[in-house]
Nucleic acid binder design. Structure first.
Lengths: 216, 216, 216, 216
DNA sequence: AATGAATGAGAGTTCATTCAT
DNA sequence: TATGAATGAACTCTCATTCAT
């Protein structure tokens, strides 16, 4: 039946439309500023309809985050592929993540707002599981790069890839967080914060710390 | 006027009492869980009275954050004082901040919640200006340590102290952020997050990146 | 037309399937907890289809109530048949209704919830008319028993069978109502409510009041 | 301070005003039809204000019910006082309750709707406790009358006062229930229901069942 | 006949803030 | 200075019913 196929297409399209609207709002208002009402208005659907596509606000947010990260992964994967050594891959990954963040500056603001939302999320939902799997992919890309670097001699052998990957990722989050919350941040720190300067500086520091002794 | 003096004393005492209550609540409930009602109940004052001491919820939060940071600064200052070289001072400062965070894990959770609250805060308020100045103090301790390290040869000469201080601080925030939001974080990243392991690893990386060539 | 006959059979079967699902749900969730969604899910039909078989939720409820009462009538009829005198028949009927209620405790809860739903029901619908006719049957069984009792001398002659039948039925409803809402009831009345004790007591009282002078 | 006294008076007055509005609405719309919005509109207060006086909808309903019963108790008490024998007291009580019901026909409709509301109510609330105590008072008036009747010889000695009181009360509820839901009831029973006839008939039956042998 | 997406009014509850006293 | 009653917009989520296909 062509009907079923069309229905499926329409359903997907509408779902995407809702996500588009939610993304835009989440980006401009932050996690706590996201209102189901506003989403409904933006997609020109009734509030009730939203709940046909997403079980609740959290599920909608998880889906937004998943879509974000879904576009992000190929982006960093190709950057990593092009770099020769393991150390270069780390640098390439971080730079790619930085560029991506600059182009989608609100992704991290949103993710962080969600992170500190406080309430523990129902992590059994499918949407959330998907999101979680994607985060795992990013980490494993980092781990692979570190391992390759240890094999090809560009990265120190005395580090543990998994723990170091978490350290690299989390410290990077801090730096980027400041960048995306530039406004609030500049209200709070009495020093100029310029991502364009800060991120390369950070990447430099990370690479320097990873590089094997003679490799600089 | 003795009367005026007593009034002033009483006013300050009441202000502190409000802050005590707010701090306790902010620590147990998080930024988003803080209710003016609850604060009023806890200090046994009416809600209206709160607004005689603080212009609004944000001003109250700024004051809480200021008091937090006020206990934090002497803590790291003494740690820094005891370390000999500039590089050691950086290490000491980060370790001190880590210990402080472990003992007051909610400070950062609160600060971050506030940071990503989204809405721009009225930064002209006195409370906020005070808070801002304190953050500046922390940064300048970092800057001084970096500069001393450059003089005493423990830290690379080719870094810019201010920018590097911001980098060190922000990346550290990322790591600690993950630690204090361990629960939400472990829901989101499929990897074990252990501050006790992660922070030393991070400090190591920071120091390694700062150390002057032969200094390791 | 064999086709038309099959269609009719299918239609009836589907109608029954819907009623089965609705009955089960009404019994477990109560009148106010009955959701058209849930009924549709349970019969594996779409919500829209429900409306092809029942004009609205009320019509569906009327049909459920009708089916309930349809199983109830033969039950009490046979009980009444077996009793010799008119007075015995009344007692047998009430005891039968009590046993039936114990086995289907939700019937009355449902009927009462529906009764006190407040909104006036569209009583022109066919489903509702059918339901009404069944209630009439129960009453007429009572009336017949009363009349027979007057003839056979077991029941006082100075009562009016119809009015008395209504009195018997409605007072019985009150007693049973309390029993099936035992939980809510025990929250509200500070006295133990035990249908097993209360109903026989009530039946006794009813019979004593009906018995002709020397008949006890 | 006269101020405190006036405040207290105003508070009570406002509480009563809210109850007035809620009562009227509960009476016209039934328990399920009662909307907090509508109550707020009717008293010309904001919805939020309602929650300063009543913790939630249930507490408001309990308060309405308590006020109802508070006017009811003196009414039946004085009726009971005036009757000489125990049996007469029962009759007087039931007739009084009947008259009261006729004047406030919606009380029982409401109470019944609330009863079959299904959800279990938080019975720890003060409002609810008060309500419960009032119901207990009514029951104990019945019990006392029964006991007196047993002493003065007007009532059979072989009944248990508490159980019989519950039986009398619950069966009466059934009869009255039909009366107050006359509209829905007449839709459902194909027989004329006339409280003016039904209640005396019921009271007669109750009294006849209670009367000691020779007492008729 | 059957679908199932869409509706939309409406529910109860919360809470930072104001203001007359 | 202190009160606390009042506000009212905002919130997430529900569900009987409709209707184009």
């Amino acid at each position: 039946m062509a009907v079923a196929a069309r229905r499926e297409r329409e359903r997907t399209a509408r779902r995407e439309a809702i996500l588009d609207a939610a993304e835009e709002l989440v980006v401009s208002e932050g996690y706590h500023g996201l209102r189901m009402d506003a989403v409904a208005d933006a997609v020109e659907l009734s509030k009730g309809t939203l709940y046909l596509y997403f079980a609740n606000k959290d599920a909608l947010c998880a889906a937004v985050a998943t879509r974000f990260i879904d576009t992000f992964i190929p982006f960093i994967e190709s950057a990593v592929d092009e770099a020769p050594s393991g150390l270069d891959k780390i640098g390439a990954l971080l730079h790619a993540q930085y560029r991506f963040t600059q182009e989608n500056p609100q992704h991290f603001r949103f993710a962080l707002g969600w992170l500190s939302a406080g309430q523990t999320i129902d992590d059994s939902s499918e949407a959330f599981q998907t999101y979680r799997a994607r985060v795992g992919q990013v980490l494993s890309i980092l781990v692979s790069a570190l391992q390759q670097g240890q094999r090809d001699g560009s990265i120190r052998k005395d580090i543990d890839p998994l723990n170091q990957a978490v350290q690299i990722w989390t410290s990077f989050i801090g730096v980027v967080l400041v960048g995306v919350n530039r406004e609030s941040m500049e209200q709070r720190i009495p020093a100029p914060v310029d991502l364009g300067r800060l991120v390369p500086l950070h990447v430099d520091s990370v690479l320097r710390a990873l590089a094997s002794e003679g490799a600089s």
